[in-house]
């Protein structure tokens, strides 16, 4: 761990300006990603601007939307009764991940901005294009059992691990930011995370010093019937091998609209639009779900040890949709 300067953010504008002004500065929220990676020597910010006490810790709700502060704790969001009723997939996704202690500590923005668990990214001595651009990708020739099968590039095959982000991907979420130069942006969640392509080190479209202030979830009828299903090595406290966030609008046995996103298998939150479309007008039954799952994985590419994820993800989608379809209410 390198010595660094710690600054407590006093206002949203100051915090953004402070990071903006220092090239190697970072925001610190719950610290469960940042401090972990600093100890490993993966991140070495010279300045940490602590944002967790900024007035971004509230969940506001009305008929049209939910407005969730960037620094809301993941536990708080997961347990919020109205969020659970109107967007059940959010609470289910959060509660399927981390431990209670981590959910208490970590924030919503931090979760969506967490780093990959790729073991070579986490080892400062391994070749990793994400950590050191141009240094190579040790995962491609090494232990790629946990690597992605969708959205990979020759430069990087790392999974983006957030469960919450997978849920947000099907909810038309919007991210509000404050930039270091004082400007503000409204970013659709859909294009927020980048594909690795040639620049795996750039994970989102945020600029340096751009502070996430809020997340907005527009009221969405089908979100009330949404669900998160996750498969992992152990029964609790583990990242996804494959996970699906799904929502269904079914009328008289026929699918009117569907939403599907995959987690644990892709380099960014992975919305499966073709699969969603294929379901419209179909009977809400496992056969149609399986066909949609095949579509969702049609472009998947496996490495040496992660081929099982393709079949697993198909079953996960099918299972998530089936459980949702038979869920009463």
């Amino acid at each position: 761990m390198r010595p660094f300067t710690y600054v407590e953010g006093v206002s949203v504008a100051d915090a953004a300006a402070a990071v903006h002004a220092t090239p190697a500065a970072m925001f610190l929220a719950g610290g469960t990603t940042v401090v972990d990676l600093m100890k490993l020597g993966v991140l070495a910010p010279d300045t940490l601007v602590d944002v967790h006490r900024l007035p971004l810790g509230d969940i506001e709700l009305d008929d049209r939307r939910a407005r969730i502060g960037a620094c809301v704790r993941n536990a708080q969001l997961a347990e919020h009764p109205e969020i659970r009723a109107r967007w059940p997939v959010v609470g289910e996704a959060l509660q399927s991940g981390m431990s209670p202690q981590l959910r208490n500590m970590s924030t919503v923005a931090g979760n969506v901005l967490q780093r990959t668990r790729c073991p070579y990214y986490r080892d400062p001595h391994s070749a990793c294009n994400k950590r050191v651009p141009g240094s190579g990708c040790a995962a491609r020739t090494g232990w790629d059992r946990d690597a992605a099968v969708l959205g990979t590039s020759p430069r990087c095959i790392a999974v983006f691990p957030s469960d919450l982000a997978t849920a947000l991907a099907i909810l038309d979420a919007i991210i509000y930011t404050r930039r270091g130069d004082g400007g503000a942006r409204r970013l659709p969640f859909d294009g927020f995370h980048r594909l690795p392509g040639d620049t795996p080190e750039r994970e989102t479209i945020l600029d340096h010093g751009e502070l996430v202030t809020h997340f907005e979830l527009p009221d969405l009828a089908l979100a009330r019937r949404s669900h998160y299903f996750k498969v992992r090595d152990r029964a609790s406290y583990d990242f996804a091998l494959a996970a699906a966030a799904v929502a269904l609008d079914v009328e008289r046995g026929l699918v009117r609209d569907a939403r599907i996103a995959l987690g644990g298998v892709a380099t960014r939150p992975w919305r499966c639009s073709a699969a969603e479309q294929s379901l419209r007008g179909k009977r809400a039954e496992p056969a149609a779900f399986r066909a949609a799952a095949d579509l969702a994985l049609a472009d998947a590419v496996a490495g040496a040890h992660n081929g099982f994820k393709i079949e697993l993800a198909r079953h996960v989608i099918t299972r998530a949709l089936t459980e949702l379809a038979i869920r009463p209410g």
Binding site: R117, P119, Y120, D123, S126, A138, G142, W143, D238
Partner: peptide, 16 residues
């Protein structure tokens, strides 16, 4: 890792 000789998951988040 066969190329590097390092334990791939050298912490309790990875060694389950």
């Amino acid at each position: 890792d066969p190329m590097h000789g390092l334990p791939v998951h050298a912490d309790l988040a990875g060694y389950l």
